[in-house]
């Protein structure tokens, strides 16, 4: 406890860094995954090879991935972001695809047939109906990103990993405990939050039963 009070500014800074790294990863990863998924829905033949490739990327150990990226782009936040975004693609693309494919084709046919433009159809109908599964993918992405981002401090990307590594090197239990507490707290909290959002989206997609 003493440690937290004494070093609250450092804890706060590292936490903010960690959150920033996670959110930046999520936003950029979504911006990539969404067009990729929409493309794959049109060109079905590529779906399996792309998912297989993303699966391969995902199983590369994070240390190996960072070691591979550092010679190419140097240390710091850049290789961390690249690695985290690459890992995120598997869950995001997979769940985006599953989300859109889960929609009953009659709903799309009715919407198109009655003259809804593709943009309107996407925002008003397809996205809300696919949302529960998409949020599920985001939930997985965020929790794994929070975890892997810890290791990214090893290549000077900052975040709560700094605390953990310092603690290990300096044999400082207070740092280890606080680092672990904050990282897991963050992961658990965001998991719970997104789980609620997911359920809310699901209720909405099914037509809330208002009695």
């Amino acid at each position: 406890m003493d440690y937290a009070i004494k070093h609250y500014d450092q804890l706060l800074l590292l936490t903010v860094q960690h959150i920033f790294l996670t959110l930046a990863t999520l936003v950029i990863a979504l911006l990539i995954a969404l067009p990729v998924s929409l493309l794959l829905l049109r060109v079905q033949a590529f779906t399996i090879p792309v998912l297989a490739a993303l699966g391969l990327v995902y199983v590369v150990p994070s240390m190996a991935m960072f070691a591979f990226l550092v010679p190419l782009v140097g240390v710091g936040i850049t290789p961390a972001l690249i690695a985290l975004i690459a890992y995120s693609q598997l869950f995001l693309v997979r769940n985006l695809l599953a989300g859109f494919k889960s929609i009953n084709p009659s709903i799309i046919e009715a919407g198109r047939g009655m003259g809804l433009g593709s943009l309107r159809l996407f925002w008003r109908i397809e996205l809300p109906l696919a949302l529960p599964i998409i949020i599920g993918g985001i939930r997985l992405t965020i929790t794994t990103t929070i975890g892997i981002a810890t290791i990214a401090s090893w290549i000077n990307a900052g975040g709560l990993g700094v605390l953990l590594f310092d603690g290990l090197y300096q044999n400082n239990p207070a740092k280890i405990i606080w680092g672990a507490l904050l990282v897991s707290g963050m992961a658990i909290l965001s998991n719970q939050l997104l789980f609620r959002l997911e359920r809310k989206a699901l209720r909405r997609a099914k037509g809330e039963v208002s009695l």
Binding site: N104, P105, S106, I107, I108, E109, A110, G111, G113, I125, P128, L129, R204, A205, K206, G207
Partner: peptide, 9 residues
């Protein structure tokens, strides 16, 4: 259509 396709949400 036969599948009706109402928007469930």
């Amino acid at each position: 259509i036969q599948g009706i396709g109402l928007f469930p949400h």
